[in-house]
Simulated scan of single mutants.
Amino acid sequence: MNINDSKVKNLVDWLRDAHAMEQQAETMLKAQSERLEHYPQLRARIEEHITETQGQRQLLEKCLARFDASPSTVKDLGGKLMAFGQGIGGSIMSDEVVKGAAMGYVFENLEIASYTVLIAAAKDVGDVETQQACERILEQEVAMAQWLRDHLPEVVHAFLARDADPDAVAKR
């Protein structure tokens, strides 16, 4: 495929955006997982998704390599810096676990939208390999979003129970 074609240029640019988004996700998920002390089910699912996220990033790198393109260092750094700031902000909240789980759900839906765009763009340029890679990633993002949606009430109930106990720490 011709990298100078405007459709291909957009696809490559969006793949770079997705790579940066996965870098941001990995940084955020690792920071959240490291701080979770009293929510083992949430922590286990986040750690599972970290592994998925690393695999997603590698799939995106292969897609980019087929176009003789590489991830954007600037975009990747920007994503990591945003994740770092989000981690710092979250760590000072008294309800960090609830806000972190809710924001995780929001971020998963951003990823779902991004991969939906990538699938459509890959189809449009006839890049079946990128389309299939993004479809695999999309399945994982949908599963994580669904898991978070299904388990948010449990996280809230556990947080409220711990918060009501003067001898317990609830935020993490």
Score class of each variant (00 low, 15 high):
residue 82 M to L: 13
residue 92 I to M: 07
residue 102 A to K: 03
residue 65 A to F: 02
residue 45 R to S: 12
residue 73 T to V: 10
residue 121 A to F: 10
residue 60 L to V: 15
residue 101 A to E: 02
residue 62 K to R: 15
residue 132 Q to F: 12
residue 38 H to N: 15
residue 102 A to H: 05
residue 59 L to M: 12
residue 100 G to E: 04
residue 72 S to V: 06
residue 106 V to E: 02
residue 136 R to S: 14
residue 113 A to L: 08
residue 123 K to P: 00
residue 59 L to W: 08
residue 95 D to W: 02
residue 72 S to E: 09
residue 81 L to W: 03
residue 94 S to N: 09
residue 23 Q to D: 13
residue 93 M to P: 00
residue 68 D to V: 05
residue 130 T to P: 08
residue 130 T to G: 09
residue 44 A to Y: 09
residue 127 D to T: 01
residue 35 R to C: 05
residue 139 E to H: 05
residue 128 V to W: 12
residue 115 Y to Q: 04
residue 107 F to I: 03
residue 113 A to M: 07
residue 49 H to D: 11
residue 98 V to A: 12
residue 74 V to M: 15
residue 134 C to D: 11
residue 57 R to D: 06
residue 41 Q to F: 15
residue 61 E to R: 06
residue 78 G to Y: 06
residue 30 K to G: 00
residue 40 P to R: 13
residue 126 G to W: 10
residue 68 D to P: 00
residue 112 I to A: 10
residue 105 Y to L: 09
residue 115 Y to V: 08
residue 116 T to K: 07
residue 45 R to Q: 15
residue 34 E to A: 14
residue 122 A to N: 04
residue 67 F to K: 01
residue 89 G to A: 09
residue 22 E to H: 07
residue 102 A to N: 00
residue 115 Y to W: 07
residue 128 V to H: 11
residue 57 R to C: 06
residue 94 S to T: 10
residue 90 G to A: 14
residue 116 T to R: 07
residue 43 R to K: 15
residue 96 E to A: 15
residue 132 Q to T: 09
residue 84 F to A: 13
residue 43 R to M: 11
residue 97 V to A: 11
residue 114 S to D: 11
residue 62 K to N: 15
residue 109 N to R: 13
residue 44 A to H: 08
residue 128 V to Y: 13
residue 135 E to C: 00
residue 52 E to I: 11
residue 93 M to Q: 12
residue 59 L to T: 05
residue 32 Q to V: 12
residue 37 E to R: 14
residue 32 Q to Y: 07
residue 36 L to Y: 03
residue 66 R to Y: 05
residue 75 K to E: 13
residue 46 I to L: 05
residue 133 A to C: 01
residue 55 G to T: 07
residue 62 K to C: 01
residue 137 I to R: 01
residue 119 I to W: 03
residue 47 E to L: 08
residue 67 F to D: 04
residue 138 L to R: 06
residue 42 L to H: 12
residue 77 L to D: 13
residue 93 M to F: 10
residue 124 D to G: 06
residue 137 I to V: 14
residue 105 Y to M: 02
residue 79 G to I: 01
residue 91 S to L: 01
residue 31 A to W: 03
residue 22 E to T: 08
residue 81 L to A: 11
residue 55 G to V: 09
residue 44 A to V: 06
residue 121 A to Y: 08
residue 56 Q to F: 12
residue 105 Y to E: 04
residue 33 S to W: 01
residue 51 T to R: 13
residue 114 S to N: 14
residue 44 A to G: 01
residue 115 Y to H: 10
residue 74 V to H: 09
residue 66 R to N: 13
residue 51 T to D: 13
residue 49 H to E: 11
residue 56 Q to Y: 10
residue 117 V to I: 09
residue 129 E to K: 12
residue 82 M to H: 10
residue 125 V to F: 04
residue 23 Q to W: 04
residue 79 G to S: 04
residue 73 T to S: 08
residue 140 Q to C: 03
residue 123 K to M: 14
residue 119 I to R: 11
residue 95 D to F: 00
residue 53 T to E: 05
